[in-house]
């Protein structure tokens, strides 16, 4: 009956903030909520605005202190320089290629692995899962040299596909860890119901688990894309060919020892944010429908 007083009964129970016992409490709460979120968002976005603002000012070697939130001498010259003469377009495409393929393989492979850990008992399961977790806990920087020697042996230096291979492998531990938790939450009754129908494990994985884990898969995809898009140290180590540079490498090239082309660095960094945001917006509409909602359908 309380839900009847709300304008959107279908979403009315999705958060505690909307469960006021009567109508009078709903409004101020919503306003308060909006205000809090607004303040939080402003704080979060402030440094980013400084970056965007610097990218829209004439190129400087030193950053303005204090940084501006709105550009003083507005110009788009850094963007035309970045996109025109500085090969950022190519780096952008390289990064896109690497990030899209990595995302695809990470989500595909990790969901299989996570399913095995979530739904089966098998020998060495805990040992193997422990190994995966150890992969998350060992600092990656000491692995660079052995990994680089491996990449050289496999002929995967100076190659975008080589980057995809190593990024995919590097993200499996995290993504498996993420997805396993979600697969475990799929109600066993649904699984058993389908098992009785005589479907194979693989069919259940495709027809039941993957659709139910959609929010988790979307989350995994968002992070996998970001991880591959943003990575710097490994790319620096294995990529020497200027034509195979990813965006972070292209941006780093403008940071000099004794002064950087800040306008270009910040314009490049601002452009670099766009695809990740697009992926996030695309992914986050899948995050809304929860696992339970899916199960009830």
């Amino acid at each position: 009956m309380t839900t009847l007083t709300q304008s959107e009964p279908s979403r009315s129970t999705s958060a505690p903030g909307e469960h006021g016992p009567n109508r009078r409490q709903i409004k101020p709460l919503t306003v308060l909520r909006f205000f809090l979120v607004l303040v939080g968002a402003c704080v979060m976005v402030l440094p980013f605005l400084m970056m965007v603002s610097t990218s829209l000012e004439p190129n400087t070697a030193t950053l303005p202190t204090p940084p501006h939130i709105f550009p003083l001498n507005f110009t788009t010259e850094n963007y035309s320089e970045a996109l025109g003469s500085s090969n950022f377009g190519l780096y952008f495409l390289n990064s896109l290629y690497v990030a899209v393929l990595t995302t695809f393989f990470v989500v595909l492979i990790s969901s299989l692995t996570a399913f095995a850990f979530a739904r089966f008992d098998f020998r060495f399961k805990n040992v193997l899962f422990g190994l995966l977790l150890a992969g998350l806990m060992i600092p990656g920087i000491v692995l660079i040299v052995p990994q680089f020697v491996l990449a050289k042996t496999l002929g995967m230096t100076d190659s975008l596909n080589g980057l995809v291979f190593f990024y995919t492998a590097g993200q499996i531990a995290f993504t498996t860890f993420l997805l396993r938790g979600f697969f475990e939450r799929v109600p066993k009754e649904l699984d058993e119901a389908m098992t009785v129908d005589g479907t194979t494990v693989f069919t259940r994985f495709i027809r039941l688990y993957l659709p139910l884990a959609r929010p988790a898969l979307a989350t995994a995809a968002v992070f996998a894309f970001l991880g591959a898009w943003d990575e710097f140290v490994w790319a620096l180590t294995v990529i020497s060919d200027a034509d195979k540079r990813t965006l972070p490498l292209g941006i780093a090239a403008f940071q000099g020892e004794h002064g950087s082309a800040w306008g270009l660095v910040f314009a490049g960094s601002t452009l670099a944010v766009i695809p990740v945001i697009i992926v996030y917006v695309a992914g986050q509409k899948h995050l809304i429908s929860g696992i339970t909602a899916g199960a009830v359908k």
Partner: peptide, 20 residues
Amino acid sequence: VQVPSDQMHQKLVTGVASGS
């Protein structure tokens, strides 16, 4: 091959270690 100055030493060390 342009290497950012901050990372030159690391790239050299990795190059030494892997013979590249």
